[in-house]
Amino acid sequence: MKLSASITDLAELMRGEIAAGEKAVTAAVKHAGNGLRDDWRGQITRAGLGHRVARTIRSETYPKTRDSLNAAAMVWSRAPVILEAHDTGPLIRSADGFWLAIPTEAAGKSLRGGRITPGEWERRTGLRLRFIYRRSGPSLLIAEARLSKKCRAVRSRSKTGRGLTSVPIFLLVPQVRLSKRLDLERPAEAALAALPAAIARRWSGIT
């Protein structure tokens, strides 16, 4: 018994196999990219950085409009500086070499969002800050103020100074280490390691 196959049949078979491979590679790469994106978003939310920062994580598969054996996925953030800081836990020092001013609850929040600065606090309240040096523990910037019901330091309306007290507004430290709250590299390495098996499953028709 003789078996034979034409060149046309072989060429068609190869085209079909390549098409299946392109589809498998693209699907696996896209799934890995989306999975990594979702992992990073979950980490950011659990770390307390908020959904707004989590939504800065994006993923895209290339080529965008067709399947390819050379498909690639890119996962990135639109807020890379914020994420890098929480991923590496850097040591932060003052830019001018003096103190880092950390606002207390009495300082309130900045009108521009984020942490309020000593200069903004003085402009907003009309009160002056006074430096208190301490050998042990952080030094202080304090103000003679009244505490509101929300525990914010405000100007006293009393002509006699009733209710005034020395309120710590800022803690002063030479440096601070930001705690590491994210681990972005580990899931990226896991996604890369799992990719060959994911491609093989799709190429062989196993989902």
Rank of each mutant, 00 (worst) to 15 (best):
L3N: 09
L3Y: 14
S6H: 02
D9K: 14
A11T: 09
L13T: 07
G16L: 03
V25M: 11
A28D: 01
H31R: 15
A32E: 12
N34G: 13
N34K: 12
N34Y: 04
Q43N: 05
T45M: 06
R46F: 09
G48P: 09
H51T: 12
V53R: 00
I57H: 09
S59R: 03
L69F: 00
N70M: 02
A71P: 01
V75E: 07
V75A: 08
W76C: 11
A79Q: 12
L83T: 13
A85Q: 04
G89T: 12
P90M: 08
R93D: 04
P103A: 11
E105A: 14
A106H: 12
A107V: 03
R134I: 00
R135H: 10
R135S: 13
G137F: 01
S139W: 01
S139T: 06
L141Y: 10
A145V: 13
R155F: 07
T160M: 08
R162A: 14
G163Y: 00
T165G: 10
V167H: 06
L171K: 09
L171Y: 15
P174L: 09
L178V: 15
L178H: 05
L178D: 01
S179A: 14
R181D: 03
R181G: 06
D183P: 03
L184T: 11
E185N: 05
E189Q: 12
A191S: 11
A197G: 11
S204F: 01
T207N: 12
T207S: 11
